[in-house]
Design a protein around this nucleic acid. Structure first.
Lengths: 209, 209
DNA sequence: GGTCATTCTTGAACACGTTCAACTCACCCA
DNA sequence: TGGGTGAGTTGAACGTGTTCAAGAATGACC
C-alpha cells in the first residue's frame, strides 16, 4: 500500500521530487508509520526493483521458448529487459546513484542483492543451456555470470542514454549480441582457448574469495 | 582554503560524516560563504578529483619512462593509480555514488568531465604509443579509449573492494594485464581480426553520435 | 472482564544541504 | 569628499530524510 503510493508518486514527480511526507499522505498514514514498514526511502525502491525483475523473467520465458539459437536468445532477453524498464527510464537514473553506493543494499553487488543476482544469473544459464551452440568446456560454467555482468554494462549505458526511447542502447544491443555470439564461438579455437581459460580462472578466483 | 579544510575533514570523518557547517567552521568562514565559492558539497570533491588525476599522471610518467613493454606499462599505470588512490579508499566509496549519478558533473561520462576524461585517455595513448608491441591497425585508434574504460572497470571493482589494502584489486590488476596484453596480440590474427574490427566499429559509432 | 505484552501509529523534533535578503568592504570616478 | 558599483560575507530560514518517546490498538491468557 505504501509502496504503491510511493511508486505512483515516483513515476509522476521523480525520485528526488517525491518526499516521504507526500508518500505518507498519499498512502493515508503518518510519516513515522511509513518508516515502520520501510526503513528508508531507498528501501521503497527495492519492491519496485523486485517487481521489475519478475516482469523481466516472465518476458524472458516467452523469448526462450521461441528462440533456439544463442544470439537471438541473448538479444531477446536483453531487449525484454529494455521493454520492461523503458517506462521507468526517466526516474531510474535518479535512484541509480543509490544503487551505485557500495554500502547500499540496492547495489547489485551487495549481500542483500544476492538472491536477485542469482535469479538473474540463472536466467542467463537458461539462455546458454537451451541454445544450439557449442561452448568451450572451461567457459560453460562462467558464461552465465559473465552475461549477467554484460547486462550490468548495458544497464549502465541505458541509464546514461538520453536518446529518444533509448534508441542508442537498443542499437548497442542489436550490434553487440552478434559480436558476443562470435566471441563465444571463437573461444573454442585452440589459439584462443588458452587465454579464455586464463580469463575464466581469474573470474572464478575472484568469486571464490 | 575551503577546499583544504573540506579535504581534511573528509579524510577524518568521511564524506557523509562531514557537514558543510563543520567545513565552514574549519575554514573560518560562514556556511553561506562556502557556498559562494563552491555551489554544492559535491563540487568540493571536484578539486580533490582533479588533484588525484594530476598525481596519477605524474606517477605514470615515471612508469612510462622506465618500462618499454606494453604489459608492464599498462600494469604500472594502473598500479600507480592504486597507489595514488589508496589513502582515500575509505571515503571514496561514499562519494562514488554521487559520481555515478548521470546528472552529476562528477560522473566520468558527463560533459564537465570531458577534459579529465580526455587527459586520462591521452595517458593511455602514451602507454600504447611508446610500447614495443604490434597492434592491429583498426584497433590502434580505439585502444586508448578502451583502456580508459578498463580503468573505469578497475575503479568500480576497487570501490567495492573491502579486502585489506585492496589486495583483491591489486591481484586483479596483476592477473588481468597479462590477459589484456595477450588479447591485444591476438587481435592481429586473421581469424580474430574480423570480430575486432566489428567491435571497434560499434565503439567508434557510439562515440560519434 | 481485566491485565499484560506486543505490534502498530503518531507527529514533533533533529540535523542536514541549500538558499537568500541583507550587509560589509574595497575600489573607482567626478 | 561623496557616492556608487560590485565582489565578498553573513546567519537565519526552508524543506528534506530520519528518529523517537509517547500513545493507541490488538490479541492472548486467566
Amino acid at each position: 500500500m505504501i509502496a504503491d503510493a510511493a511508486m505512483r508518486l515516483f513515476r509522476r514527480d521523480g525520485y528526488d521530487g517525491t518526499t516521504m511526507r507526500a508518500i505518507a499522505t498519499e498512502a493515508g498514514v503518518s510519516v513515522g508509520n511509513a518508516y515502520y514498514y520501510f526503513s528508508s526511502k531507498e528501501h521503497l525502491i527495492q519492491a519496485f526493483y523486485d517487481g521489475m525483475q519478475v516482469e523481466h523473467a516472465d518476458a524472458a520465458v516467452a523469448v526462450l521458448a521461441r528462440e533456439k539459437d544463442f544470439e537471438p536468445r541473448l538479444r531477446g532477453v536483453l531487449e525484454a529487459w529494455l521493454d520492461v524498464a523503458a517506462p521507468n527510464h526517466e526516474f531510474a537514473g535518479q535512484f541509480f546513484k543509490n544503487a551505485a553506493d557500495p554500502e547500499s543494499p540496492l547495489s547489485p553487488f551487495s549481500d542483500e542483492s544476492t538472491p536477485a543476482r542469482a535469479a538473474s544469473t540463472e536466467l542467463y544459464r537458461r539462455v546458454v543451456d537451451g541454445a544450439d551452440i557449442k561452448i568451450a568446456p572451461g567457459l560453460r560454467a562462467e558464461l552465465p555470470g559473465l552475461l549477467w555482468l554484460l547486462q550490468m554494462g548495458f544497464v549502465l549505458f541505458w541509464v546514461y542514454d538520453k536518446s529518444p526511447d533509448q534508441a542508442r542502447t537498443r542499437a548497442l544491443v542489436t550490434q553487440g549480441t552478434p559480436i558476443v555470439d562470435r566471441l563465444v564461438r571463437l573461444a573454442r579455437l585452440p589459439v584462443v582457448r588458452g587465454i579464455v581459460d586464463d580469463l575464466v580462472k581469474v573470474v572464478a578466483g575472484l568469486r571464490s574469495e
